[in-house]
Nucleic acid binder design. Structure first.
Lengths: 232, 232
DNA sequence: CGTGTTATTGAAGTGTATCAAATTGCGTGG
DNA sequence: CCACGCAATTTGATACACTTCAATAACACG
C-alpha cells in the first residue's frame, strides 16, 4: 500500500522501447512517438506497491515496460477479485480514462515493474493527431469486454474445478515464470484458497499438475484444457 | 429462430431520428448523418427473431430505433445468459465489429423493433472522416467493460437474493414497461428460475414487491436497493 | 377453447464456503 | 548465514445455499 515511487527518470525514447511492438502504439509514426517521449514519465515500482487505487480519478495512461501488474477490485465483503493481469506491452488505466470514470480497481505490482505514465493531455493530443490510435484502443477494449463477458458466463455455469483449471491455464500460459498463491488463483477464479488447494491436490492425484511446495507445474496441459471445459 | 425480416425500407433521414439524441451519433455534423442515411438499411423485427447469431461474423453496426433487444450467450451446458439489453438509442454489434471477432452472443428481439443496419464499409468511412465518433465508441465500450466487470465481481461475492434484487432494479428501472419471465431474470442474475421464484415470493412476503400473476411490481425500491447490497 | 409455455411449490442431494488447527515455507533481521 | 516470525499452505469437519428433479397449477396464445 506504499504509493511512493522510488525512482523517476526520463527514458531514452519510445522508438527503441522493447514493449512497444507488443502494444497499441506499435505502428505509430515517429512524430507520434516523439510526442509520447516529450510527455511521458518513467516510473519504477516494487512488488506490492499500488500504481493507482480504486475510486481515484485517472490522470493519464500507464504503459507497462517491464514487470507484471495485477488489477484488483475489492468487494464489499472483503473478497478481492483479480480483473486483469498486465505485463510488458500492456496498458493500464485506459478504461477509466476513456469512460471518464474513477478507477474501478487498484493496480498492484506483482513483479517489480517499469511503467511509463502518459499524462491525460498528451493522450488527448495523441488521439486528436493520430486517430488510428483511437481505433487500436477500440479494438483493445472490445477484446477486453469479450474476455470479461466470457468470464461472467463462466462464473455462472462452470463449477469451481473448471474455473480453477481455466485460471491455471491463463496464469501459467501468459505469466509462466510468475508464482501465484492459492489466494491469487482463487481471486481470479472466483472461489476460495481452500477450494483451490483441494482442487490442485485432486489434479496432482491425476498427474495433471505437480505441486512442489508452493510452486505449481503443469504436467498435462491437454488434460487441464479438458478439465476447464472451454467453450472457445 | 426465424431470421426473416418482414419489412425493409429506407427511412426518411437520421437527422430526425428520435433515437439519435440518445446514442453515440448524437452530435454529428449533417455531412456525417448524410453518410449514414445513404448507406443504412432500416429493418423491422418481431419478438423472438434473431438479428444475429453467436459465431457469425459482423457485417456492420445495428442502431436500435425502437423496441427492445436482448443479447444472449448460450453456455455449453445449455444455460443462457443475458449479457446486455438494448433499447432505443443503443447500438448492437459494435464489440465484435471493433474487435474484429465473431459475435459472442445472439441478439434476440424482446419487443418488436426497428433497427438500422450500418454496413461495415460505411462505419469505416464514418470513423475515418469523423474521428470523434471513435472516441464516443471508446467511451461507450469502456463503460460497458466496467459494467461487465462489476457483474463479474457480483457473481463471485453476492448471493442469489442480492443478484436477483439487482436484476429487478436494473430491468425494471431501464425497461419499466417490459415483462420479464422468471427465466429471463435468472439468465440475467446467473441463477435458476426456481431460485428467482422463491426469492420473489420472499420479497413479496416482505412487501418489497407485489406479484400479480407473472407481473412484478416494485413496491419498496429502497428496500430492494438494500437487498441488492450495491457497491456503487 | 384447447395446448404448450410459464409459474409455483416440494423434496432431496451436493458443491462449496466457512471455520479451525497444524504445518510448511519464505523473507527478514539479527 | 541462520533463526525467527509471519504468511501461506494444507487437511478436516461442518453447515447451508443453491441446484436439480418432479409434479401440479396458472396463464397466454393461436
Amino acid at each position: 500500500m506504499n504509493m511512493a515511487v522510488f525512482s523517476i527518470k526520463r527514458s531514452s525514447d519510445c522508438r527503441n522501447c522493447e514493449s512497444r511492438p507488443k502494444n497499441v502504439f506499435c505502428d505509430l509514426p515517429d512524430e507520434a512517438l516523439d510526442l509520447l517521449d516529450r510527455h511521458k514519465i518513467v516510473n519504477h515500482y516494487k512488488r506490492g506497491q499500488a500504481i493507482f487505487h480504486t475510486g481515484s480519478l485517472p490522470s493519464g495512461l500507464y504503459c507497462v515496460n517491464s514487470g507484471v501488474i495485477r488489477l484488483e477490485a475489492s468487494g464489499s465483503t472483503g473478497n478481492n477479485h483479480i480483473l486483469r493481469v498486465v505485463q510488458s506491452g500492456g496498458i493500464l488505466g485506459y478504461r477509466s480514462l476513456f469512460a471518464n470514470e474513477a478507477y474501478e480497481a487498484s493496480a498492484v505490482v506483482h513483479e517489480d515493474s517499469q511503467v511509463c505514465q502518459i499524462p491525460k493531455p498528451a493522450v488527448s493530443e495523441l488521439l486528436a493527431k493520430f486517430p488510428a490510435v483511437g481505433l487500436k484502443f477500440l479494438a483493445y477494449v472490445s477484446k477486453e469486454l469479450r474476455h470479461a463477458e466470457d468470464r461472467l458466463c463462466g462464473m455462472a455455469d462452470k463449477n469451481a474445478a473448471e474455473r480453477i483449471a481455466e485460471a491455471l491455464l491463463f496464469l501459467k500460459q501468459n505469466f509462466a515464470d510468475q508464482t501465484w498463491t492459492r489466494k491469487e488463483i482463487a481471486d481470479w477464479a472466483g472461489t476460495t484458497p481452500e477450494t483451490v488447494m483441494r482442487t490442485l491436490a485432486d489434479f496432482a492425484d491425476q498427474d495433471i499438475v505437480a505441486l512442489q511446495g508452493r510452486r505449481i507445474e503443469i504436467l498435462d496441459r491437454d488434460a487441464l484444457v479438458a478439465k476447464a471445459n472451454l467453450s472457445l
